[in-house]
Design a protein around this nucleic acid. Sequence first.
DNA 1: ATTTAAATGTGAGCATGCTCATTTTATTGT
DNA 2: ACAATAAAATGAGCATGCTCACATTTAAAT
Lengths: 218, 218
Amino acid sequence: MRITAKAKAENRMKILREAANLFKKHGFSQTTTRDIARATGIATGTLFNYFATKEDLVLALVDICFKDAEAEFQQRRRGRETVDELLFAHAAVSLRHLRAHRGYAEDVLRTGAGSSRKNRVTGEAERIRVTHLDTVKQLIGVSDGTSPEGAQKLSPTGLDLHLYWTLFLGVLNFWAGDESPYQEETLALLDQSMKLFVESLEGRQKSSLEVNDGPIPG
Amino acid sequence: MRITAKAKAENRMKILREAANLFKKHGFSQTTTRDIARATGIATGTLFNYFATKEDLVLALVDICFKDAEAEFQQRRRGRETVDELLFAHAAVSLRHLRAHRGYAEDVLRTGAGSSRKNRVTGEAERIRVTHLDTVKQLIGVSDGTSPEGAQKLSPTGLDLHLYWTLFLGVLNFWAGDESPYQEETLALLDQSMKLFVESLEGRQKSSLEVNDGPIPG
DNA sequence: ATTTAAATGTGAGCATGCTCATTTTATTGT
DNA sequence: ACAATAAAATGAGCATGCTCACATTTAAAT
């Protein structure tokens, strides 16, 4: 059982490695699941024992990058003081860790995490989003549900977090097409975006309108 | 020749009508191109003489909405004074005209304007975006290329327009899932977003960094 | 009218993401 | 060892967006 589990994990890694190579070489949409299976040395059907959809496969790669980025960020966050410094650093580290996949990112973003048949939705993208936003919440100063003591902190509403994610996606989109050697343009946009977000947060601090998060049924 | 052209236009309209109905009834991804062809009374292949991709078909519907919205907006824009009032009105009218398609908008956005095979990219989405942004540019005060005389106007850089489109897409995404009776939540977000955008514009007026639009090759 | 050429319609067929009944392999029980 | 059972692998096959060689219709020319 132990050995099998380990073998499974190794298979998974091998699939991810081969897929990443093919994606880098030929792009996301030009690489078929059959290609990936063949490169890995397994049958097409087996591939889907490891990843529910082709989209989940890329998202697994993305997830690894985000996790690594998160770890590095937590190690180096000391020294950053202001909220927008923290947010900038957090996002910038993520981008850096994603860099190996930038070549086909546009391709992935364009197919929009979109599958073809039967509208399979696995929620992987959602999970990544929520994880990222959880960290953002903490950086802003509100750790999910607990009330902060003393110092005045910024409390992001659901709309605020939606705005954050929108801005982050905008940066990602730009980044995907930013061919400048170190994506300096993207970093400029990121800086602008994060500052804007914090300004928006601070601006609504006083006139706090209490807008709900989820949609109202009816 | 005249008659034929008219017939073609009518066929096109019929396809659009049937497609819209099916999309509303069953969603975008659950409606097959075969379904649409059958409902219209044409062969599957014929459908693709009118629209290059299934995506183009929805975008044609979207395009109609945007055009109608544009017309209505131009008629009623008098009275709106500030830039953010104009931008808000412009976007809000567009949303209202899109309303009939809101039920499956999430579906469309999720498949991200993403095709499956061979990565067909027709540029329809791009055209819609550019058209919309052109109007935005004018509303801000810069009519493509001509230098304004006298009064100080806001000049959006490429990055600014990227930011605008990002925010607009964010609003669209929220709107797609906003079940409140008249999408009031969406309008609140839109208001916030447009104000934020204008603030961002005004903020950068003085320290004008001259950031280029397109990516730098190399 | 008849011929001709261009435009349009047609549906079998392809590529591909994904499924599932079947086969193969690994683990457990005796 | 061997049988029994659970887990994993397999690849033929399905659904669907789209293509393309051919058929049909239409418009123009004579």
